[in-house]
Write a protein that binds this DNA or RNA. Structure first.
Lengths: 192, 192, 192, 192
DNA sequence: TATGAATGAGCGTTCATTCAT
DNA sequence: TATGAATGAACGCTCATTCAT
C-alpha cells in the first residue's frame, strides 16, 4: 500500500513537471499559470502545493534542470585553453539564461539563497558552475594572481552583467558573445 | 494663467514626492502604500496616477533621486588614487543599494531600460555612474589595457555581484567593503 | 468530499444573494455596493467575483428572480378573459419593473442577450413571459388573425413603451394601468 | 468686441461638433472620448463643458441631427398608402438607429425626457416623428378605431421592439424590414 | 470664454496560496 | 495525498465632470 501510494505521488509529481515543461515549450516560462497547469494535469490546485512549496519552487526546479544540462556539457568538454575558447563554451548557457526576461529574473532571485535551507536547484547549479569554473581556471592557462574563488565570482558577475545589458535597450545591439568576450579577456588574462 | 496651473501641478507632484519620502523614512520603501500616500497628501487617487504611471514609477523616481545624491558626492570628491580609496568612496552608495531587498530589486529591474523611451531615473543614474567612473578611470591610476567602457561596465558588474551576494545566506557574512575590494583590486590593477 | 465542498460553495453563493436581497430591501437596487455586500457577508472580494462575473451579473440574477416570482403568479392565475383582466394581472409586474429607473435600465440592457451564451436570468424570464402570454392568447379570447409570436412580441413592446413613458416627464402623469390598457386593447381586440 | 467674442464661441462650438462628427465617422459613436475630442480640436477640456452640459448632450445633439435628416426625408415623401409602403419609408431611420448598440441606448435614454427642461434634440425628434406619423395616419388609409396618439405611440413601441430584437442573439437573424412589417401590419390594419 | 489640474468613488483584477474536509 | 472553495490586499483604472484661476 505504502509503495503504491508513493508511486502514485511520484506519478502525480512527474505529471505536473512534464506538463509544465510542455506548456513552457509552447508559451514560455512567464506565461505559466498554476491554474492552467493543474487543469491540464487533471489535479486539484491543492495537489500542486502538496508537491511544490510554491510556484517559484517549480520554476526553480525546471530552470535548474535546464541549466544542469548545460553544465553536463561543460563538464564533458575539454578544459578551454584560452578566453575565446571559454567564451564559446559558455555561450549556450548564456543564451538559455537570456531567453526570457522572466527566466533571468528567477535566476537572479534564486542564484543566491536567502537562507541555507533554501538552497534550491538553481543555487545548486551556481555551486556546480563555480566548481567547473574552478576546474577550468586551475588548468594553468589563466591568471593566478587572484584567489580562485574571487576569479570565479568575477566570471559570474560578468556573465550576469552581460545578460543584464542584453535586456537593456541601450546595449542590446551587441551579440552576447561579443559582449561577454572582452569582459572575460580583461578579467582572466594573466598578469605579467 | 498657464504658468499658475502648471505651478499647481508641480506643487501637487512635489507634495506627493515629499510625503512619500517622509513615509519611506519611517517605514522603508517596501511598506509604502499608494492609498496611504494619497490619503496623507490629501489628494485623490486619480491624481496620483495622473502624475505617475504606476507605483513602480514613483519608486524609480525616489530611488533614482537618492542615488543621484550619492553621485553628487562622488562627483565632488577627489579622483581616487587607488582601489582602496575608490572602494571607500563607493561604499555609501553600496550601502544604500543594499539597504532593503526591495530597493535592490527595483534597481535591478529598472537599471536597464527595456526600451529607449522607458529610460527612467534609475537607468539614468546608471548612465551618470558610468560617466563618473569613466572620469575616475581616466585619471591614470588604473589599468589602461582595456577599453574604458568595458572597465566601467565591469565595475558595475562587480558592484551588483557584491550586492547580490550580500543578500545570499552563503556569503553575507562578509562586510560589503571586504567583498567589494578584492573584486575591484583584481579588475583595476594595471597590468605590467 | 466532493459533495461537501460544492455544498459550501452553494452556501456562500446563497449567503451573498440573501444578503444582497436584504440590502436591496432597505436601500434599493441602485445603492448596492459590492464592497458593502462582501463586508456584510463576511467573505473576501475575490469570492464575490468567483461566484459572479461582475456586479451586473448579480443584478441580472436578483432582478430575474424577482420577475420569476411575478411569472409564477401569472402562471397560477386563470387565463384572462379580456384585455381589462389581462391588464390587471400584468400590473404587479409592471410596477416592479418601473420601481426604480436603475432596475428598468438593467432590464433593458439584459432583456435581449447579445450572444446565445450570455442568456442570463432576465433574458430567460422574457422567454418565459412570452410563453405565458402565448398560453393566454391561445385561449380563444383574443385576436387570431396574426401569428402568435407577433402578438406576444407586440405585448412586450407595448409593455416596455408603457414603462418608458412612465419615466418620461411629458407622459408620466398617467397611471401605468391607464396607459397600458388602451395599447393592449388596440392590439388584442379581435378583428371582425 | 461682443460680436467677435460670440463669433469665436460659435466657431469653437462648431469646431467641436465637426471634429466629433469626423471622429464618429471613423470610429463610431461609442468610441468617442471627450479627451480625444478636445485634443483634436485644440481646446481645453473645460471648454467642452462650457459649450455642452455633458458628453451625453453632445451625443444627443449629434444623433438628434442625424435623425432629423431622416425626418426631413419623411416629411418630403408622399403619405404612404399602405403598411408596406410605410415600412419602406421608415426603414432608413431604423437602420441608423440600430447601427450601433450605443446609439440605440442613447436614443432609449433620451427619447423621453425625465424633466420638461431637459427636452433635447432626440426627444424633439420623437415629437416630430409623432407629428409625421400623425399626418400619415390621418390620411385615411389606416385604422381609425383608436385615438391617434395611441396609434402613434404604438408605432414607436413596435419600432423600438424591432430594434431591441435586432440586438438580440435569438432574433437577429431576421432583417429589420421583415421584422417590422408584421408588427405594423397587425397594428395599423383597419378594423372592420 | 478658456484653461487643465484635480476629482471621485467604486469596480474589477490578480493569482499564488491556504485550509477545512 | 487530494480536493477546490475561499482568501487577500493592494493596485490600477475609468473618464466624465468640476472649479479655481
Amino acid at each position: 500500500m505504502r509503495k503504491s501510494t508513493q508511486k502514485r505521488a511520484i506519478e502525480t509529481r512527474d505529471k505536473l513537471i512534464n506538463i509544465a515543461v510542455e506548456m513552457i515549450r509552447t508559451n514560455g516560462y512567464e506565461a505559466l499559470r498554476v491554474e492552467e497547469l493543474v487543469a491540464q494535469a487533471g489535479v486539484a490546485k491543492g495537489t500542486f502545493f502538496a508537491h511544490f512549496k510554491d510556484k517559484d519552487s517549480l520554476m526553480d526546479l525546471l530552470i535548474g534542470n535546464e541549466i544542469d544540462h548545460y553544465l553536463d556539457q561543460l563538464e564533458r568538454a575539454a578544459t578551454p585553453k584560452d578566453v575565446s575558447d571559454m567564451t564559446d563554451q559558455l555561450l549556450p548557457l548564456l543564451h538559455f539564461m537570456s531567453s526570457e526576461r522572466y527566466v533571468f529574473d528567477v535566476i537572479l532571485r534564486r542564484s543566491g539563497a536567502a537562507a541555507i535551507e533554501e538552497i534550491g536547484p538553481i543555487a545548486t547549479t551556481f555551486g556546480r558552475f563555480e566548481e567547473v569554473m574552478g576546474q577550468w581556471l586551475s588548468g594553468g592557462h589563466f591568471r593566478t594572481d587572484v584567489p580562485l574563488h574571487i576569479l570565479v565570482e568575477g566570471i559570474e558577475a560578468l556573465l550576469m552583467q552581460t545578460l543584464a545589458l542584453n535586456f537593456c535597450a541601450l546595449h542590446n545591439n551587441l551579440p552576447l558573445k561579443e559582449r561577454f568576450y572582452p569582459y572575460l579577456k580583461a578579467w582572466l588574462t594573466p598578469q605579467i
